[in-house]
């Protein structure tokens, strides 16, 4: 992902998980904060799909266990590095 796309992904995480505008999200992982539970997870998936116009498959949904994983998954869809 390019820096602009990464920033977009950070914004998706902050918005979906109800974090402050400047919150650091790069080291976030599933269940590391109360908002990222199973409901938060499905919201993240939906928000990522909308923001990047991608469709995540089963493996991607259950592997999306951290911000880094999300960046890797979205990066693959966008065809960049």
């Amino acid at each position: 992902m390019n820096p602009e796309q990464l920033d977009g992904l950070r914004a998706v995480f902050r918005h979906t998980l109800d974090l402050e505008a400047g919150a650091v999200v790069d080291d976030l992982a599933y269940r590391a904060l109360p908002a990222w539970d199973s409901i938060g997870h499905m919201r993240l998936v939906a928000a990522i799909e909308t923001a990047f116009d991608v469709m995540l498959d089963t493996d991607e949904v259950i592997d999306l266990s951290s911000f880094a994983q999300a960046a890797a998954i979205v990066g693959r869809h966008l065809g960049g590095v």
């Binding site: 599933y30 539970d37 199973s38 997870h41 499905m42 259950i62 592997d63 266990s65």
Partner: peptide
């Protein structure tokens, strides 16, 4: 949760 690979 059922949304984690570890669960399956």
């Amino acid at each position: 949760s059922v949304l984690e690979r570890g669960f399956w």
